[in-house]
Every structure is written in C-alpha cells, then in structure tokens.
Design a protein around this nucleic acid. Structure first.
Length: 507
RNA sequence: CGGGAUGUAGCGCAGCUCGGUAGCGCGUUCGGUUCGGGACCGAAAGGUCGCUGGUUCAAAUCCAGUCAUCCCGACCA
C-alpha cells in the first residue's frame, strides 16, 4: 500500500474553507446537525470545551462580583413590546409558543389545543424578562449595583444556520446589571468587555480587537455596544463577544426605579453582556489546520493522549501496566489548578490510526509508548502545534517535569500564530480603488480566500457604511478603543475623518 | 424569504438522458495475519432509492406536488 502525503481533512482550507470547517467538526466529533431544523447536537468532545469555557468564565464573573441566577425561558409577548427598538431587532427571529397541550385528532395523530391567552416568546435574549424581576428587586440606591449572570440557552430563528456560528438554539451566558449612575454602568460595560478580551486571549489563544459598534450594528435598544472582534483563517471577522451599555432604555420600559440618597425616584442604568457557543466556532476557525482541530491546552477537554503500542497480548499487558502508571503520575500533576486530563487509548486499531484520531480531535499532546520505550525508560511525544511527524523522544522523567511548560508553550505558540496571521492580513488602506481590489476575489466563480482587516478612515456617516456594504459586503466591524486620533479622509466619500476603523467581511 | 443545486446502505457516490431483479468505495461484523506513521487477506451483514400522488403490464429512472439539506443573497451572537 503506497503511503502518500495527505491531509486528514478534505477539502483543505485553501480548497473550500466552508466545507473544511464542517469536516473539522465532524472529524473531531464536536457536534452534528440534529433532526430539528437549525439546531445542533453538541457531542461530548465539543461539550467538554464549552464546559471548560463555562468554568473559567464563571470564575471570572464571580471575581468581578457577579452572582448566577436563572430566569424563565418564556417571555410574555407584552414584555417584549415594551422596548420598541428591541422588538424591531428581534421580531423576525422569534419562536413563539401559542398552545399548551396536544389532543387526539381521531386519525392516529395529535393536534395542538389549549390556545394560550397570551403567546410566549422563547427567549432570544432576556433583558425584558429579567428586567421585570429587577423592577421588583430594586427599590433603593442601597440595592445597587445589582450584578447578575445567567447561563442559559436562547433561540433565534435564523434563516441560515452553521454549526456553532449560527444555530437556531445556542448556549450562552448573559450578564445583566443595574447601576445608580450612568458612569458606573459604563465602567461595568467596559470591565466586562475586558474580561472577555482577557479570556479570549489568555484561554482561547484568540487575539481580539476591542471596539465599539457603529449605529447600524448596535444591539437593539442599547445606547452603545462594545465588542471583541477576531480574525478567522479565511480572513473574515467573527464577533466573539459583546457588552452593551443600555442607558435607561430598559429601566424605563421595565420600570426599574430606585430612590436615591437625596430621596428622588430615578430610573436605573443597566448593562448586558454575553458570549456564546460561537466561541467554539472561533476556536475552530482561528486555530485548526488541514489535519483537523487544534485546541489550546488551557481549554482542551483532555491534555494528553497516551497511546500504547504492542504486537501481541504479552506485550500489551506489559505496555499497559507502564502506561497506566504513567497516566496516574500525569493525572496527579496540576495545570491551572486542575488535574491534567489524560486519555489512555488502547482501542483495537493500529497505533498510527489511534494517533491520527487524536490529531484530528486536537488534543495538545500525544505520547506513544512501545516496548522500546519500556526498555529505555522513554516516550515519544508529539505536539499538536507541530508537524505530525515531528515527534521527540524524551525520558519519562523529562516528560513529568516538563509537561506543564510544554503545554504552556503550545498555548503561546497557538496564540502567536493567530496574532501573526492577523497582523499580516491587516492593512492600512486609504484609497477606495485599493480597498475594492483588497475585497474582490480574483476568481469570482470560485472565490479564493481574500481580503482581511482594513484599517481605514471613515467619516461616521451611515450612508458610507451602507454603500461599502452594498458594493463589497464589507462592514465596519468596530471602532477600535485604542484608535489614535489622526486627520484623514473617509475611504468612501472623502470627507474629513478623525480616526481609522476596522473594516472586514464578517460572519 | 428570493436565486441555484442535491436527496439511492452509517458516510461518500454511481445508476436516471433511453422505465425491465439495487450497484461501487469507505466504514461495520466475523476469522486470520498485523501493529513505532493512516495495515492486509478471506467471508458476511446492511437499502420499502426523502415523502405523497400520477402515468405505465412494470418507476430509483417519466410527470406533479411536498419536505429536507447545501451553496449564493437578505437577516444575525
């Protein structure tokens, strides 16, 4: 059988990026489409990533003073109608519950019955239902700030769905806070944006740009929406988290009022912020390669796959006993205050097939152990951030003492790789023809990966935004918070501009 | 929701133009040889051809409808 160089994932990113994305998810057993339109089944390996995201973020939320609570999945339609912009923003993607029971239809099937007096909306986000509770909880300035987070599922009836990136139902967390002053609420909004950015960069190894959304991309009902934007390997932008300053808009519609120190009754100031299972989509598209998933060690479901190699039952007994002992030693080591997670894989497949299976799943380290290693007290170690053939022999002692450094080194490499990719695909562009060329594929029938982030001047006029969107499907992803003030002219209309913004095609 | 395409075994596909006993590859199961880079040999199991109706002696194949999926738009975390 002629062995040839091939990739584990077909097609490759270059050949067909969208299909590559689906195949990575399939090969890594992260999720699959379900029998329910637009809804995914998250499989154990994928769900474990979400659980790790939850665990780390939850701790960060606690550290910043937030408490978890849970509110209903159903929102009375009348609640929804209270905030005009909010309704308008979500009206087109609501799932609505109108009946409460099923009855025999006399033909062997069931028919819906028991029409509700008022329809319920399955929450697409919870500002209005949580606001109703907050109105009861907040009476005095002494009740503030109120800092709440909810881990939940939400439903947005999207027309076109993609696993993790856009599904009809998705898992997320939504923070909802209430403050006595505008200033305090703004501080909270920015603080949580920072939490997201820190989490994305330090745990997901995902470089992000913090910025503010333009009017057209703002959360329905918000005064200001801030976001973290990241670049995927097809050079498109993915909004990876948002934090909203809601002003008094929702406080007014939900009647969240408090008596201040001076005795006046005032409307409160609220914020909301969230990240979702979309982050897993970001991980896939930012880090994975043509051999499958690449998972940053800090968020990986398991850190090390131990792969015993043997020729017969006698060898298997010997090797397995060695491997189990090594597994226990590794498992007792603590990485970021958690035990190292080890997978011992002695499935009845050839060793290389088992090894490839873990490569596709994105496990950070593969450790192969055969009879030769038993004799010499060594193991073969393969890193997911390096070529699959690039394995190193090291002593068991070395592995045990260096494993944490290796994992952290992989984490760092993955981050730096993503950062370098973003850097080389981000360009200052000041000429619309150049801008156009940047965002126009050379082969329009089968568009190749093209474009990237353009850092260009924008006058702030929505008309220019719309024109660029219509011309090139490119939008302002954000106005970076760290943008330096400089004089320039709008890439679109030529009018004066004070700062550059980030343009890109996006998900 | 508009434009395009596709539904045949767990997965990927052929067969359809020109109607006549359901095929291939991978995977699965069993037996054996293998096992440090995606193994091999042999045997076997597995499908009311998306669904409904029509034409016909006969439909995977022709016709109509319907549902679903994918791609491109619009919408969006």
């Amino acid at each position: 059988m002629a062995k040839q160089v091939r990739t584990a994932i077909e097609p490759t990113r270059e050949q067909n990026y969208a299909e590559w994305y689906q195949q990575v998810i399939k090969a890594a057993e992260l999720a699959e489409n379900s029998d329910v339109r637009g809804c995914m089944v998250i499989k154990p390996w994928g769900f474990a990533i979400w659980e790790n995201i939850q665990r780390v973020l939850d701790e960060m939320f606690r550290e910043t003073g937030h408490k978890n609570a849970y509110f209903p999945i159903f929102i009375p339609k009348s609640f929804f109608e209270k905030e005009a912009e909010h309704v308008e923003g979500f009206a087109k993607e609501c799932a609505i519950v109108t009946h409460s029971r099923l009855e025999d239809d006399g033909k062997g099937g069931l028919k819906v019955a028991g029409e509700l007096a008022e329809p319920y909306i399955v929450r697409p986000t919870s500002e209005t239902i949580i606001g109703a509770s907050f109105a009861r909880w907040v009476n005095s300035y002494r009740d503030l700030p109120l800092l709440i987070n909810q881990w939940a599922n939400v439903v947005r009836w999207e027309l076109r769905t993609r696993l993790f990136l856009r599904t009809a139902e998705f898992l997320w967390q939504e923070g909802h806070t209430v403050h006595a002053t505008s200033e305090e609420a703004v501080v909270e909004t920015m603080k949580m944006l920072d939490v997201y950015a820190t989490f994305a960069e330090e745990y997901l190894a995902l470089p992000v740009i913090k910025g503010e959304k333009t009017d057209s991309e703002r959360f329905p009902g918000a005064i200001a929406t801030y976001c973290i934007e990241s670049m995927m390997q097809d050079r498109k932008a993915l909004q990876s988290g948002t934090s909203h300053f809601l002003g008094q808009n929702f406080a007014k519609s939900s009647q969240i009022k408090f008596q201040s120190q001076t005795g006046d009754v005032e409307y409160a100031w609220t914020t909301s912020w969230g990240v979702s299972t979309r982050l897993i989509g970001a991980l896939i598209m930012a880090h994975s390669d043509d051999n499958g998933m690449v998972i940053p060690p800090r968020i990986a479901p398991a850190h090390i796959a131990l792969i015993p190699i043997y020729k017969n039952d006698e060898e298997k007994v010997e090797v397995m006993s060695f491997v189990k002992e090594l597994g226990e030693k590794l498992h007792s080591i603590r990485y970021l205050e958690q035990k190292l997670r080890i997978e011992i894989d002695n499935r009845d497949m050839t060793s290389s097939e088992r090894s490839w299976s873990w490569i596709k799943h994105g496990i950070p380290l593969r450790v192969e152990i055969g009879m030769r290693d038993l004799a010499s007290g060594t193991v073969m170690v393969g890193r997911r951030d390096q070529d699959s053939k690039d394995k190193k022999s090291m002593s068991v002692e070395e592995l045990l003492t260096q494993v944490l450094d290796i994992l952290e080194d992989i984490q760092k490499t993955i981050y730096e790789r993503a950062l370098a990719f973003r850097s080389i695909n981000t360009h200052k562009i000041d000429d619309y023809e150049q801008f156009k060329a940047f965002y126009t594929p050379k082969n329009s029938n089968e568009p190749e990966i093209h474009g990237g982030f353009a850092s260009s001047h924008w006058c702030g006029d929505g008309a220019c935004e719309t024109k660029i969107k219509e011309d090139l499907k490119v939008t302002v992803r954000c106005i970076p918070l760290d943008a330096v003030l400089e004089d320039g002219i709008c890439i679109c209309c030529g009018k004066p501009s004070k700062r550059r913004v980030i343009f890109a095609k996006s998900y």
